[in-house]
Design a protein around this nucleic acid. Structure first.
Length: 483
RNA sequence: GACCCUAUCGUCUAGUCCGGUCAGGACACCGGCCUUUCACGCCGGCAACACGGGUUCGAAUCCCGUUGGGGUCACCA
């Protein structure tokens, strides 16, 4: 196993599948394939509060849609399983105890209150933020007694307090950081689950990962990870930190400023191969600067060293252009097949049809009546615009209302159904003290462009979260311009 | 704020390691051609080496500094 390349994508199932996950997965997948190695999917669900299986399922679907099929993973198993961190607790416990025994890690009994105070104090006095090592001096015998007595605690990594660490990133070379800058990271939380740092290192080693290709945001914790490898006496993998995808304003890509859900791109009609091609262009170029290429060509030409380090702005316009190029190159028959994967699938039509059924008088009526189920953003004509306003509110006020609805109530919905949408909408009304009557018509218009539609929740359920989100976003923009 | 990463057209980038082409390509934008229209396609145009010092005959390229941008500083990943 030592000379085969093994890479992994290790997403955390805490929301909609993210375009950044696809980006990192692409490079991991391609490198493994290039060298005839394995690409592994590992689910990092150690955050018991935020992790959920709906999100995990969406990650599977999104990666499969893109064609980034893994060789080992939670759903298909493999020699290094389980591939879901929540099922590997004993492994982490066993490993961390070795570190406690060797003195490379130690139990910490500090309360959250003390930690909060400590941070406040450090901030006030402009000191470096970080744990002060308070529990480090507790004698091993004493902490062992306290632990067995059931006292709540975490396990921390004992970082050297002096000297400096030099770590190597494949793309950036040596990076030297003062050890004093590195915190005594919590490795095991008080609920007994490991943090990312511990689980990630242990799993990468146990799963034989040879190349850790991940996002740039991890660079600052690299010294901790390297320390862990050393403490365990393990050989280091190659670390390669990819530049972070950016919003137009150069900040780290975020859903507030960009569509980032892979579900969105699928629903909006981007071809998976165009998506991958575009993502490959972020920070990387073909030796001959050719911009259109297949995943197979990417695999054969890939060299990580050709990755440039400036944070690439995710440019929807260029993605759209590339996608158009791919669509034009499709055979007519193939184009039909693509449309049949979503909008023209029996599955989708059978959802739309019942909503239109009673409301049409000729078969042809269906197409005009149900048009908004098939388009992207909708237009708001003059009449629609006036009714887009919530009762007694002006444009900006309604926009604000919509933003609250979208971000606090609709966005968190993971399983988008008639019931979950209705529930969110009703909770929204209660919380913001507006009546359904005042706000449902504006929402109806926002998501359909029409004043007469099938029942709102059914309509929203069929449209899907992605379409509703993007149309409400658009409505917010429009509302801001209405006095 | 501290630490780390980073810096070529508005955007994605080639060129940088091994100093020496009017700094090349693509998206977007603008003009033209094609065309009953639109789109596609084709042709052309606009547009960048962040700044300041060095080193050198010569610097986008090497060195130092400055500035800008980003990331991290959680019992989230």
């Amino acid at each position: 196993m030592s000379d085969t390349v093994r890479t992994r994508i290790a997403p955390s199932p805490t929301g909609d599948p993210h375009v950044g996950t696809a980006y990192v997965a692409l490079f991991n997948y391609a490198l493994a394939k290039k060298h005839g190695g394995q690409f592994i999917l590992r689910i990092e669900d150690t955050d018991r509060v935020r992790s959920n299986t709906a999100s995990e399922e969406m990650i599977f679907e999104a990666l499969r849609w893109l064609g980034l099929q893994w060789d080992e993973g939670p759903d298909i198993g493999g020699p290094c399983g389980p591939y879901r961190q929540s099922e590997r607790s004993e492994i982490y416990t066993e490993h961390v105890e070795k570190l406690v025994a060797s003195g490379d890690a130690y139990p910490c009994f500090c309360t959250r209150e003390r930690l909060t105070e400590l941070r406040a104090h450090q901030r006030e006095n402009k000191l470096a933020l970080g744990y002060d090592g308070h529990c480090r001096s507790i004698a091993p015998e004493e902490s062992a007694t306290r632990r067995s007595a059931g006292e709540e605690h975490v396990i921390r990594l004992a970082m050297p307090s002096e000297g400096e660490s030099t770590v190597i990133d494949l793309l950036r070379g040596e990076i030297t950081i003062d050890n004093a800058q590195v915190d005594d990271q919590v490795l095991v939380k008080s609920d007994g689950f490991p943090t990312y740092h511990l689980a990630n290192v242990v799993d990468d080693h146990l799963m034989g990962i040879t190349h850790v290709i991940r996002a740039e945001e991890w660079i600052s914790s690299l010294p901790k990870h390297v320390r862990l490898y050393e403490a365990f006496g393990w050989e280091l993998p190659v670390f390669c930190h990819l530049p972070l995808l950016r919003n137009a304003d150069k900040s780290k890509i975020s859903k507030r400023k960009n569509p980032v859900s892979l579900n969105h791109f699928k629903r909006a009609g981007f071809l998976p191969e165009a998506m991958l091609n575009y993502l490959a262009l972020m920070g990387w170029t073909m030796p001959d600067e050719r911009e259109e290429f297949s995943i197979a060509e990417f695999i054969s030409e890939l060299t990580l060293e050709r990755i440039s380090l400036g944070g690439p702005v995710f440019d929807l316009q260029k993605l759209t252009w590339l996608n158009g190029k791919y669509i034009r190159e499709l055979e007519g028959k193939e184009l039909l097949e693509r449309l049949k994967t979503q909008w023209l699938s029996d599955e989708y039509l059978l959802k739309v049809l019942p909503l239109a059924h009673e409301r049409i008088e000729t078969l042809q009526d269906f197409f005009s009546y149900a048009a908004f189920f098939f388009t992207g953003d909708v237009e708001y004509d003059e009449k629609a615009r006036t009714k887009l306003l919530a009762k007694g509110k002006n444009g900006p006020q309604t926009a604000k209302l919509f933003r609250g609805l979208l971000e606090d109530f609709l966005e968190p919905i993971l399983v988008w159904t008639v019931d979950s949408v209705e529930d969110a909408m009703r909770r929204f009304c209660e919380k913001t003290e507006v009546t359904p009557k005042e706000v449902f018509m504006p929402v109806r218009i926002a998501v359909t462009g029409r004043t007469a539609t099938p029942p709102l929740f059914d309509t929203m359920a069929v449209l899907g979260k992605e379409v509703c989100r993007s149309r409400i976003r658009r409505a917010i923009e429009v509302l801001r311009t209405i006095k």
